[in-house]
C-alpha cells in the first residue's frame, strides 16, 4: 500500500532530518518548505499521512490543515510546533489536526505516530 508521508517545515535542516528519519523506517517521503508547495504536491499525489509545522511563511500550518481537510476527511494530519499555548491547541483541534507534537520531539515518538497513522488508515480501509 501507499506509504508516503508529507512533511512541511520551513527549515531545511529539520526537513532534511525528518526526511532521513522516515526513509530509515521504510517510508516514502515528500517534503515541502511552504504551505503553497505542499498543496501543489497534494494535487498530484495521494498522500494520507502528514506532519505540518505550524509556523510557515505565507499560509500558516493551521490554515494549510484546514484546506487539506476539505478534500481529505480521513487523512491523518499531525502538527509539529515550536510553541504552543492553550489557545493554539484549541485552534489546532478545530482546524482538524489529529494530534500535535511540541518541538523538540524525539524521533521514536514521530515514528510511532507514523506507524499508528498507517495502521489506522489500514483498519478503515478494511472496515
Amino acid at each position: 500500500m501507499n506509504n508516503t508521508i508529507l512533511i512541511v517545515d520551513d527549515e531545511a535542516s529539520i526537513l532534511n532530518m525528518l526526511e532521513k528519519a522516515f526513509i530509515k523506517h521504510g517510508y516514502t517521503v515528500r517534503s515541502a518548505e511552504s504551505a503553497e508547495e505542499a498543496l501543489k504536491i497534494l494535487k498530484h499525489e495521494n498522500i494520507q499521512v502528514m506532519f505540518l509545522d505550524l509556523k510557515l511563511p505565507g499560509i500558516s500550518g493551521v490554515d494549510l490543515c484546514r484546506q487539506i481537510r476539505k478534500d481529505k476527511p480521513i487523512a491523518i494530519i499531525y502538527a509539529i510546533t515550536g510553541y504552543t499555548s492553550l489557545f493554539e491547541l484549541a485552534e489546532c483541534r478545530e482546524a482538524g489536526f489529529d494530534d500535535y507534537f511540541t518541538k523538540p520531539v524525539e524521533l521514536k515518538i514521530l515514528w510511532k505516530a507514523a506507524r499508528d497513522a498507517f495502521e489506522k488508515l489500514d483498519r478503515w480501509k478494511k472496515g
Partner: peptide
C-alpha cells in the same frame, strides 16, 4: 526549539 529539534533528530 527549532535548532533543538534538529539536534534531537540528528
Amino acid at each position: 526549539n527549532q535548532p533543538l529539534q534538529a539536534i534531537f533528530g540528528y
